[in-house]
Design a binder for these strands. Structure first.
Lengths: 112, 112
DNA sequence: CAATTAGTTCTATGAGTATCGAATAATGCA
DNA sequence: TGCATTATTCGATACTCATAGAACTAATTG
């Protein structure tokens, strides 16, 4: 991976609101046990992660947790996807979202 | 550590030039074996890391490797220090610089 | 097909960032 | 003490970013 890719990943995580969005998704997808109890984040009606490793209705749920307009949140999702940090697939009217483990590992490798 | 601290750390690494500066210092301080041979970065007259874990004349050396004005590089050093990623101490006319392991570990912990 | 729900795109705006060159300060040496 | 070296600060500029609201598109459901 190029230096510029790493810079883009860090850029995606450099905004506090966007970092929060990423961590919500990360927590739900990669640490579901922790997240059900005492999560730093709260979703109306609970989070629920039916398929392991991914989060259904991710956009909707994130919107419910944050004081940002939907357009801004949409923009942040795009940035996270462009950086390769998350992967979203349409599921009817909503999105199922998962974390790209390879990218997360790349960060860990860089700082090994 | 607060979410905003993490965001600041990522912000410091989000600019490609600044990331390069950080990685030069990181490589010299934390992976000296690798860096002496076949480093991605080159310093006039070699790097040399007399005291383990720190890099002498860091600013000067970084300036020699990069096509940026000294004022810009100075600014980038400040950002890296403010984020807590590096620690610089004056040594005569130059600076000895080291990586703040705690902050690096905090990133790894966040993505554990 | 009409109505509803979910998310996107466009446009505007204020704030922040990267960069440089010039002026300035700090340090050590002759 | 004066000079050279090293780094910082200042001011300007062009650029990027975060954000909201309005208009729009896509999918589902009655």
């Amino acid at each position: 991976m190029e230096l510029s890719n790493y810079a883009n990943i860090f850029k995606a995580l450099s905004n506090e609101q966007r970092l929060k969005i990423f961590l919500m998704i990360y927590e739900q997808c990669c640490k579901p046990e922790e997240s059900q109890v005492g999560s730093k984040f709260e979703a109306k009606g609970g989070w629920c992660c039916p398929a392991a490793g991914s989060l259904e209705k991710a956009f909707t749920k994130v919107c419910d947790c944050m004081n940002l307009s939907r357009s801004t949140i949409s923009h942040h999702f795009k940035e996270l996807q462009n950086a390769g940090l998350i992967i979203c697939e349409r599921e009817g009217r909503t999105f199922r979202c998962s974390v790209n483990g390879e990218v997360v590992n790349a960060i860990k490798e860089l700082l090994k």
